[in-house]
Write a protein that binds this DNA or RNA. Structure first.
Length: 269
DNA sequence: AACGAAACCTGCGCGC
DNA sequence: TGCGCGCAGGTTTCGT
């Protein structure tokens, strides 16, 4: 599902629901989600959830001594239910909280991941160690330095989480449309001003999307019943065959590095 | 070093 | 109705 705005929506929702609760039981039905030894994973038992952070698309549960890192990938979702309700199909992990409720991890495609690290080391371990800055804190010069030395298409560069974190397929399309840059332009071909326009557009898009609770496309909900409203603000993504909101030219869909990509062939060049 | 394709999974919609 | 194919908001791994 999720790019930065959707993960932020999940984070805020969870923050209101499970903060300061203690994990009293864990049920793991599909262990491959867990990248840590399952025996180590049981260290979570008895620990309290003190804080829920987010970096890029990663959810970060701060516990007493450890940190649980969760990546929802394409379709990971959470549900909160009363305990003693059995896990259904596609529900792979259950965290019982305070002997009362269960936080359920639901993931049809089973792509999601969880890592457990000590609170001292998690920032320098695998998923977070190489993560790039988010658009809101990214420095223009730093982004230009990285982009201008790459001979790959700009869309692929913006999807590279080690360069800049939080953007995915939807928001990259929306960002490049607003910056009037074609997704197949090579990084090395972009001027400083163009990179600056891209960064400003990314900030604007993400800011607005966070305010609206993210984008709901297909089946994604932040949590059970929590829908985003940014899909009403999409200008190009999913708009194939429709007129460009700026110039009226028909929006086309193409493949860029294997990803479905929506572009106005007139505005973006 | 850097890039692209394949792999990880399942379900859905489409054309035949 | 059934089958096969392509597609899906992400990332890692493998081969070139």
């Amino acid at each position: 599902m999720p790019e930065l705005p959707e993960v932020e929506t999940v984070r805020r929702t969870l923050e209101n629901l499970i903060l300061n609760k203690r994990v009293t039981k864990i049920e793991v039905r599909y262990p491959k989600i867990i990248q840590t030894d399952v025996s180590d994973f049981n260290r979570i038992l008895g620990q309290k959830i003190h804080r829920i952070d987010r970096l890029g698309k990663h959810l970060i549960f701060i516990l007493d001594h450890d940190v649980l890192l969760i990546h929802l990938r394409m379709e990971g979702r959470f549900f909160l239910r009363d305990k003693d309700t059995a896990l259904n199909k596609h529900e792979h992990i259950g965290f019982q909280l305070d002997h009362k409720q269960v936080l359920i991890y639901h993931d049809v495609r089973k792509f999601g991941t969880m890592h457990l690290y000590s609170i001292e080391t998690y920032l320098s371990e695998s998923p977070l160690a190489k993560l790039g800055a988010e658009p809101m804190t990214m420095d223009v010069n730093s982004l230009y330095d990285q982009v201008s030395k790459r001979k790959t298409e700009i869309k692929a560069i913006l999807l590279d989480q080690t360069v800049i974190s939080g953007l995915g397929n939807i928001y990259v399309d929306e960002t490049l449309f607003r910056a009037k840059i074609h997704p197949t332009r090579l990084g090395i071909s972009l001027s400083k001003l163009e990179v600056e326009n891209i960064l400003m557009a990314a900030r604007e898009v993400l800011h607005k999307a966070v305010l609206l609770g993210g984008t709901t496309i297909r089946t994604f909900e932040a949590m059970d019943g929590v829908h985003g409203r940014f899909q009403n603000e999409l200008l190009v993504h999913t708009k194939v065959g429709e007129p460009c909101p700026v110039c009226g030219t028909t929006i086309i869909k193409m493949k860029v590095k294997g990803r479905g990509t929506y572009v106005c062939p007139r505005c973006q060049n």
